[in-house]
């Protein structure tokens, strides 16, 4: 293993495919120099800059917050910007990078996320605020514990690693999918949202939470350590007492303008 500052030769195998030219995807091998700090993204950039400028992948933030760079590495979905080459070498000193599985390939490591975004839009990701003029002069009062419960969903970066690891998605593109169910969870649990009944109807329907087979692939794949399965299980329970939950929400919203303790 390379120590700080030392370089080491490694082999990066990348699945290439340009539908305009290639009959089918193939693996290409590139030799590069890596240090202990070289990330998978650094490696791809190095290949593109020095060996083959046509190698195509998405990236932007370089620090695991924009969600661009999810790929399949040695058979597992992950972000490539925050993982070091060194830690992912197989026994023969190689790393193998493929596009996210089960999605159409646009070119090389760039996949078509159309169905992913369609499902996101389907759950109405935006907050639907109370209509009754409960809007206070300042902020709605949301308690720290309520915020804490949302944390698990609010840090999702929509990278698609979970979606493309999900066996149910692989079989059925109608399934809403872990990312969009997590978003639905965020809105359903938000005390400021006025449409939990409608939301629970969508996620409790044919393409929603009851399709999940709890295989837990999404949890393994998530680079942000989130737990879409927990969200799905919570939504299942709430879907079963949809109207009672909506009634509780109406009650809760009565004190939104002032806070419970105030």
């Amino acid at each position: 293993m390379a120590k700080n500052g030392q370089t080491q030769n490694v082999t990066i195998r990348v699945q290439r495919f340009n539908p305009d030219v290639d009959a089918k995807p193939y693996l290409a091998s590139y030799e590069i120099e890596a240090t202990a700090d070289t990330t998978l993204l650094d490696a791809l950039e190095q290949i593109k800059a020095t060996l083959d400028g046509s190698l195509t992948f998405r990236r932007s933030c370089r620090h695991a917050i924009c969600g661009s760079c999810a790929m399949n590495v040695n058979g597992r979905n992950m972000l490539v910007c925050n993982r070091r080459v060194n830690a992912l070498l197989d026994r023969r000193g190689r790393v193998t990078i493929r596009p996210l599985p089960y999605l159409p390939i646009i070119k090389d490591l760039v996949v078509d996320r159309t169905s992913f975004w369609e499902q996101y839009l389907r759950v109405k990701p935006w907050l639907i605020p109370p209509e009754n003029g409960a809007a206070p002069a300042g902020e709605y009062r949301v308690l720290p514990a309520e915020v804490e419960a949302l944390k698990m969903a609010e840090t999702c970066i929509m990278c698609g690693a979970c979606y493309s690891a999900c066996q149910v998605v692989a079989m059925n593109k109608q399934y809403i999918g872990p990312h969009a169910l997590l978003k639905a969870f965020l809105r359903v649990l938000d005390p400021r949202d006025a449409a939990p009944a409608e939301r629970l109807e969508i996620v409790g329907g044919d393409d929603g939470v009851f399709r999940c087979h709890t295989i837990f692939n999404c949890i393994d794949a998530c680079p942000k350590g989130l737990d879409p399965t927990f969200a799905i299980e919570t939504l299942r329970k709430l879907a079963q007492k949809r109207l009672a939950f909506a009634a509780e929400r109406v009650e809760r919203q009565k004190s939104l303008g002032t806070g419970r303790d105030a």
Partner: peptide, 23 residues
């Protein structure tokens, strides 16, 4: 500035909170 923050908040932005629910 204050009005912009309140608007974000009313549109669903999850800010960190004080014990009484203020931002």
């Amino acid at each position: 500035a204050p009005e912009i923050i309140y608007e974000y908040e009313r549109m669903g932005c999850v800010f960190s909170r004080l014990a009484d629910g203020r931002i």
